[in-house]
Design a protein around this nucleic acid. Structure first.
Length: 586
DNA sequence: CTAGGGTTAG
């Protein structure tokens, strides 16, 4: 390498803007070394991959190279892989392998190509890349495989991702963590925990990345015991203090597992906090029903100079919504754009519709939707529909569903919401009309489930599922539960049939004839049977609690003198002494 | 120029 080349390279080392880069580039041209592989490489990588770079300039530079090297191609492929035109990475790769130049793809080429597949691909693109990786002999490269796993998972093919992972000749901690993260993103949290168990068996220890993935899965599954274990491990191994991600995941885990107190303790102990940390706790206050505290906490955020974002406002507005603080909510909704320069998006609007709707201001909610720029967003009409369910307002619900149908956005859940309203108003024609519609249009229903953690194991119940080995035990407890609840004032209508005939056979028959038990009732019965006296039952479910279950649970909490904490799709219910923290407002 | 893993909302 000649002296001038070294000088140019040194100049490029300190370059931080396109303006400077152009100057250096013209110097290089004057000196006749712009085609030197090293100089061209540095120029390219700056333009293609640095945040101050410029992809068109990178293309220009590249087009002037008579013999681009693998590294040159790689820079360009890498640059496009994270740009809005990530599909161009694939075109570049194709030109690279089809042109007669001496540059062959290396492992890095595939890593960048796969990043592009993650960004915008389809499973088909991943398979194409997979094929090339095989052809060029990189199928056992640990980094390439890790990227391939992620690319498949990001395109919704977690099964393919797992296959690649299983077939890897060896796996390091990054590969394991990546597989766990893939399952987290796919919301397959039980699988994520299983992978972790295997990872431990083969001798890997938890690091920061593992901890974040595990805590996220615990949060989603409500697996408090495992979460507490990860917490202790992270604390003892210093992972917690050095990494803000771990603290954030921990706060979120405690919030989602129903322990707001612990979430606050972790929050207060954290040495460094970012917007995620604050948002997680803000959100936690809201879903635990402390709307007023959420507002105070939000003010604290402003005073502390936290960089607010749109999620912050979503948390705040949801907090207001759960407690019926409509005036405050409206005030902050307006302040969001006028004082904080943040544009509310469809979710914020949806939250406002929910807020007004639940407070019974259905007309106002409709006006709000019609006046907004999101009239054609299904989220808003769906929020209205749910509010109609609470207030048993069939006419308004028909309007909401009508709009959803018009934009072809209706699903089975929407139809059964209206069916539920008809049912509670005694309109059986309406109910069958809705059922027919779901059937005829082949809409898929989401099965309801509830989880409960007993002795560190997460047990999942699905509606009407009687396939459990210990169903007799659950059934027995269920009968006792209902009888005692009735003794404490629970209206018995719903369970008349069972109460007349108290045999397990009748239980099965009840289900087979269309009578049903929501999954949370099964989970609560199981918890009562298995958890020691005095312990809190923690249930996590994927749907909202229904009025019936809510009332039954209130009575059960008194009849058995048990605290029961249920996390439904949007918030927490703390049942104690016959009442619920939501004050029946949800 | 020299590759891969993470958190909040819905």
């Amino acid at each position: 390498m000649c002296r001038v080349e070294e000088v140019i390279l040194t100049l490029l080392q300190g370059c931080n803007s396109m303006h400077r880069l152009r100057k250096i580039h013209s110097q290089a041209i004057l000196l006749g070394i712009d085609h030197s592989s090293a100089v061209a490489g540095k120029l390219l990588s700056f333009c293609a991959t640095s945040s101050a770079g410029n992809l068109s300039y990178a293309l220009l530079l590249f087009s002037r190279l008579p013999n681009p090297s693998t590294a040159h191609w790689n820079s360009l492929i890498r640059g496009f892989s994270v740009s809005p035109s990530s599909s161009y990475s694939m075109s570049l790769y194709n030109s690279m392998v089809s042109c007669s130049s001496a540059a062959r793809p290396d492992a890095a080429t595939f890593s960048f190509l796969l990043k592009a597949c993650s960004q915008n691909g389809a499973t088909g693109k991943c398979r194409e890349a997979h094929g090339s990786i095989f052809r060029f002999g990189f199928a056992s490269n640990i980094i390439v495989c890790t990227n391939l796993t992620r690319a498949y998972a990001d395109n919704g093919s977690v099964g393919d991702a797992r296959k690649v992972f299983d077939e890897m000749p060896e796996r390091d901690i990054v590969a394991w963590n990546s597989m766990i993260a893939c399952y987290c993103r796919a919301e397959m949290h039980e699988e994520a925990l299983k992978v972790y168990k295997q990872m431990r068996i083969v001798g890997f220890r938890i690091d920061d990345f593992t901890a974040v993935g595990l805590l996220s899965s615990c949060a989603h599954l409500g697996a408090l015991e495992l979460g507490v274990w990860v917490h202790r491990f992270a604390e003892e191994n210093g992972i917690l203090d050095r990494n803000v991600f771990v603290g954030n995941a921990l706060v979120d885990m405690y919030v989602k597992c129903g322990s707001l107190e612990q979430a606050c303790i972790v929050f207060n102990k954290m040495k460094k906090r970012d917007t995620f940390t604050w948002n997680s706790l803000l959100f936690g206050l809201g879903i635990h029903g402390h709307g007023k505290e959420a507002i105070l906490f939000f003010r604290r955020m402003v005073i502390a100079g936290v960089q607010l974002n749109s999620v912050s406002f979503l948390g705040l507005l949801m907090g207001c919504s759960h407690q019926g603080l409509v005036d405050e909510g409206l005030e902050y909704f307006h302040a969001m754009s006028s004082k904080f320069a943040l544009k509310p998006d469809a979710k914020h609007y949806g939250c406002m519709v929910d807020m007004m709707g639940r407070a019974g201001k259905l007309e106002k909610a409709v006006e709000f939707i019609r006046a907004s720029s999101f009239v054609s967003d299904p989220v808003l009409w769906r929020a209205l529909l749910s509010a109609c369910k609470i207030h048993k307002n069939a006419e308004m619900a028909e309007v909401a569903l009508g709009n959803l149908i018009e934009m072809s956005a209706h699903n089975a859940g929407d139809c059964s919401l209206l069916a539920g309203i008809y049912a509670s108003n005694g309109n059986s024609d309406g109910v069958s009309k809705m059922r027919k519609m779901v059937k005829e249009q082949g809409m898929k229903t989401t099965p309801g489930w509830s989880c409960i953690e007993v002795k560190g194991e997460v047990r999942k119940f699905v509606v009407d599922d009687i396939s459990h080995l210990d169903i007799e035990e659950i059934h027995k407890k269920l009968m006792e539960m209902i009888n005692r609840a009735i003794a404490f004032g629970y209206p018995a209508e719903t369970f008349k049939l069972i109460l007349r005939e108290k045999s397990p056979e009748m239980y099965k028959e009840w289900i087979e004839h269309g009578g049903s038990f929501h999954s949370e009732i099964l989970a609560i019965a199981f918890g009562l049977a298995r958890m020691p006296e005095g312990t809190i039952l923690r249930i996590v479910k994927n749907m909202r609690v229904c009025m019936d279950c809510h009332m039954l649970t209130k009575h059960v909490s008194r009849a058995f003198d048990r605290e029961i904490i249920v996390r439904d799709r949007v918030r927490f219910h703390h049942f104690k002494d016959g009442s619920c923290s939501c004050n029946d407002y949800w």
